[in-house]
Design a binder for these strands. Structure first.
Lengths: 239, 239
DNA sequence: GCAACATCTTGATCAACATCAATGATGCGT
DNA sequence: ACGCATCATTGATGTTGATCAAGATGTTGC
């Protein structure tokens, strides 16, 4: 399991700088590295299910993971997306409660699992870790509060644009010929679940965005924004 | 400012057991007590405004405080209510960001203000305080996530019932003659802002609840639930 | 390459809620 | 107690998005 600081080692993992393990001393880092479990996962595979007890924490090294909740009527809502450099499942681990969401792999992913006993040791021995988790929790709470306001306030069109902008930030690049090109890493139904709307509504809204000249869609997995300013105007300058 | 463990002292404050200062040593407690500022506030008074920089933390000793956010179109949404035993404004203090909501007193309240330099000292010298704030933040994030799901999923009627049940838990008592009587501590417009609906919709929904026999309203500030089971049935047993 | 299946789109209809306008209640100051 | 201002209710109408049903477009396995 321990490759001596090879390409799979936590010590040299470039994503670690984004995580709560950022300031970890070498000693603790090697502890993590010795005990971590690497997994390569395909879309549709499950990290954990709603209702499960937490066994540890999941580090996303590559790929994309979504946290999904099923409501009483069986609708699934995508509560959040986790990109590389994110630890998934820390809330339930720290609060010792069962998972309230399921975590599902949305793209080919490389995920490391760290057992709760190891995390416990890190928190006890490295004060920075606790602080990082506090900051992370504060940020998550604030993001959620914003989404909460957004859902009550603005319509599907603006919310869809917002989600598309998130994809653009992460997967986009500028093609001087056509504009800002980016991938949509999820299926339409998941895009719908992310926006909090029915798939049919997403279809109609994307068509409307094309008619407005805000976004062009190339098939179902790619899109182009010819003019970013028009989009900012629509959603109110602040992203 | 310092009364020797009189009725206004933090040392003997009964609400403290509910706050992050719960396990504070006497020494630190007296530090807080020496530097806290007591204020008696009337409905409508403001603790802080959206956009202000955080100067410290607010302890609710008595009364009721609401956090309100104004969206782009000027709608105000009541993001959360804070009851006695709650510290308000900790997120912005710890993340060193400007307040994203305004805090407004909704009922006659007794609020203590603690300057950020004191809070800083406490966190540095008393490890339990940081942990308490972490727990608090985790809980807030989880509550928000639930509200988020709720807003997308269930209708105004169920959401209103949910809010009424919160009031019942806090202000209610059983009158064997008529049923479970409780006060509604906010005006209709604020009840609307809390549910995330227009005041007109709240009017119509309350009328519907009366027609269904779920809740009777006595004026605008009091209500009666003749049969709790009927309400639980409507919102799905879990509260 | 084609069948079988899942996914996406389109159209028609419906329910929920917002908005606007008017009226009725309540409270507050002098 | 009166008048004014704020707040709450009611009705009429408009908008948004969900749902249902059907067709179109992929996608996978053989």
């Amino acid at each position: 399991m321990a490759d001596e600081h090879g390409p799979n080692s936590c010590v040299t993992c470039p994503r670690r700088q984004l995580t709560e393990w950022r300031n970890l001393e070498l000693e603790h880092l090697e502890l993590v590295n010795r005990h971590k479990h690497d997994r390569m996962l395909k879309p549709g595979e499950i990290l954990f299910n709603q209702g499960d007890e937490s066994e540890g924490i999941y580090c996303i090294k590559e790929g994309l993971v979504g946290e999904r909740r099923l409501d009483a009527e069986g609708h699934s809502i995508l509560v959040r997306l986790s990109h590389p450099g994110t630890t998934v499942g820390y809330q339930e681990l720290l609060s010792k409660r069962p998972f309230r969401n399921s975590a599902e792999v949305l793209q080919d992913s490389h995920v490391c699992f760290i057992n709760k006993s190891i995390v416990q040791q890190l928190i006890e021995n490295s004060p920075s870790v606790g602080q990082r988790f506090l900051r992370r929790s504060l940020k998550d709470a604030q993001d959620l509060e914003d989404s909460f306001i957004e859902v009550q306030t603005i319509g599907v069109k603006a919310r869809l644009l917002h989600v598309l902008m998130i994809f653009y930030e992460r997967y986009g690049h500028l093609d001087p010929e056509v504009g800002h090109v980016f991938d949509i890493p999820v299926a339409r139904r998941d895009l719908a679940a992310l926006v909090g709307a029915a798939p049919e509504t997403i279809s109609r809204t994307t068509r409307q965005l094309e008619e407005d000249g805000l976004v062009q869609f190339r098939g179902v997995r790619q899109a182009i924004i010819p003019n970013l300013d028009l989009v900012f105007e629509e959603i109110g300058t602040d992203i």
